Amino acid sequence: MYVIHLRYTGALAEIDDALDAHRLYLQRQFDAGAFVIAGPKVPRDGGVIVAVAMDRDRLDAIIAEDPFSQQRLVHYEIIEFNATRLAPGMHLPQLP
C-alpha cells in the first residue's frame, strides 16, 4: 500500500481553480479501486491519499493523470508500506 503526501507548491487560488478536475480524478481512482482514502490536510497546505498495493510504475502513471500533477501545483511524497494489522472488519483491497 502507499501513503501519498501532497504538498501544495502553487498558490491556493491555483489549487482552487484545479480542484474540480482533481476531485473528478480522485473519483475515477476510487471507482477503479486504486485509492481507498483521500482528503485535505489541516491546515490546508496539501492532502493525503492512501492507495492500494500495486506496482510502483502503475502508481506513478496514475499520479501523472492528476490535474495537480499536470499543472505542477503539488509535490508528491510517496511512502510504500506493508499493512500487517487491520481493525476488525477491515479488508486490504488490492488491484489485480
Results as ranks from 00 to 15, higher is better:
N82R: 14
R85F: 09
G47L: 01
R23K: 14
G10P: 12
L59F: 02
E77P: 07
D45Q: 09
I15W: 00
D31A: 14
V74Y: 01
A51R: 01
H91W: 08
E80Q: 15
L6D: 03
L73T: 11
D45S: 05
L95K: 08
D31N: 12
V74G: 01
V42W: 05
A61N: 14
E77A: 14
L6Q: 04
L24E: 09
I15F: 00
L95Y: 06
G10K: 04
A53R: 09
V48W: 00
Q27Y: 10
L92Y: 05
R23C: 10
F81G: 15
Q70E: 11
G46V: 03
A32L: 04
A51D: 02
L26H: 07
L92S: 11
R85P: 00
D55V: 05
A38M: 03
D20I: 12
L26C: 07
I63Y: 00
F35Y: 08
D57P: 11
V36W: 01
V48C: 01
Q27S: 12
V50R: 02
G39S: 04
L12P: 09
F30R: 02
L19Y: 04
V74M: 07
A38H: 01
M54H: 04
G39C: 03
N82E: 15
P88W: 10
I37V: 14
A64F: 06
G10R: 09
A38W: 01
Y2F: 15
L6W: 04
Q29T: 07
A83H: 03
I49S: 00
V50H: 05
A11E: 14
Q94V: 13
Q71D: 07
L26Y: 04
E65P: 14
Q70F: 04
F35M: 08
H75P: 04
M90W: 15
R85A: 13
T84R: 15
H5Q: 11
P43T: 02
P93V: 03
A64P: 08
F35E: 05
P93N: 06
A61C: 12
D60S: 14
Y2K: 09
D16T: 08
T84S: 15
Y8K: 06
R7N: 13
D16L: 11
V50G: 03
I62A: 02
L95I: 12
F81K: 12
I49L: 11
E80N: 13
P88H: 12
L19K: 09
Q71A: 07
A83L: 08
I49Y: 01
L19N: 03
Q71F: 02
V42P: 03
M90R: 15
Y8R: 10
A61H: 08
V74S: 05
Y2G: 08
Q29H: 13
V36A: 02
L12S: 06
K41W: 06
E80L: 08
I49N: 00
R44P: 00
Y76D: 11
T9W: 05
A87W: 13
V74A: 03
D16P: 00
D57F: 07
Q29N: 14
P67I: 04
V36P: 01
G10L: 07
A87C: 14
A21W: 01
V3M: 13
D55K: 10
R85M: 13
A32Q: 06
A64Y: 06
G33I: 02
R56Y: 10
